[in-house]
Design a protein around this nucleic acid. Structure first.
Length: 269
DNA sequence: CCCCAGGCTTTTC
DNA sequence: GAAAAGCATGGG
């Protein structure tokens, strides 16, 4: 999949075309893929869902245009490795620092003003990153820096092959197993990589917010229990009886944002 | 000083 | 095997 885009900040997205990267693929096709325009948002929730949870469906109307992106797998992997037991503000700070310290710079002009931006670093660069500098980008978390460097090395050497993982031929559980082989990647982050980076819209990551709406909206009792591996899998089973299994993760993304903003009143999207 | 944040790893049963 | 405890770091 050709990826020529990026730079997502606070809900806005900047798009740059680069002919040598696009090749013969028309830009419209690239955007269609990246923005998942092939997914019809009107088809995410079935009639049964709307009938059974009318109040949730009402809240969701505001989010009917929210798209989940097919993001670049390596970038997705590293960014979600930065997102464990930590708030959104700090997650964004880490990503910004990683880009500034290790990404290649580029300057764009927008409405007469020049902006200095940094691309997300490639695997080779992060694999060779000096540990103290990398740690400074990962919220001073030494372990996270080590884990990220190791994953970057695997991606650079081909030991971790996103082309293979993203081919769509691996069953979801096998895919998760391979990702979880790396320190710093557990079930939740593996599901996030599958969902956001590998286009596996059936993957349904369960984090603290998802647990809250599983309990609050759908009355799932087990969502309040400890999130052991068994319970995690059981909750995934359960949500697949409520959401369309093949689109559970995509639909969950809308539920996630809707819960955070409409119920929790959190400012950060 | 408490609890929380888009969990994971190690220890213990 | 699976559940409980430990872990790391900054913000509110």
């Amino acid at each position: 999949m050709p990826v020529v885009i990026s730079s997502i900040n606070d809900g806005s997205i900047s798009i740059y075309s680069s002919d040598d990267e696009i090749g013969e693929t028309p830009l419209t096709d690239v955007l269609r893929t990246y923005l998942t325009l092939d997914i019809d948002n009107r088809n995410l929730f079935g009639e049964g869902f709307i009938k059974q949870y009318p109040e949730v469906a009402q809240l969701l109307k505001e989010y009917s245009g929210l798209k989940l992106l097919r993001q670049e797998p390596f970038e997705t992997t590293i960014t979600f490795m930065c997102a464990q037991g930590i708030g959104m503000t700090l997650i964004r700070r880490q990503i910004a620092l990683l880009c500034e310290k290790f990404g290649s710079p580029c300057t764009i002009e927008f409405r007469g003003q020049k902006h200095r931006l940094y691309r997300f670093p490639d695997a080779e660069c992060l694999a060779e990153a000096p540990l103290p500098l990398l740690q400074a980008c990962t919220n001073n978390n030494y372990r996270r820096a080590v884990n990220i460097r190791r994953v970057a090395g695997a991606a650079a050497s081909g030991l971790l092959d996103f082309g293979e993982l993203g081919s769509g031929e691996l069953p979801l559980d096998r895919l998760r197993e391979q990702l979880c082989d790396f320190d710093g990647i557990g079930p939740k982050i593996a599901d996030c990589i599958a969902l956001f980076g590998l286009g596996r819209f059936d993957a349904f990551p369960i984090d603290t917010h998802v647990r809250q709406y599983l309990a609050g909206w759908f009355g799932i009792r087990r969502a309040s229990d400890a999130l052991t591996e068994k319970n995690y899998l059981r909750l995934q089973e359960e949500i697949r009886t409520i959401l369309k299994p093949e689109l559970a993760g995509y639909a969950g993304h809308l539920l996630f944002h809707c819960w955070r903003r409409k119920v929790r009143h959190l400012r950060t999207a």
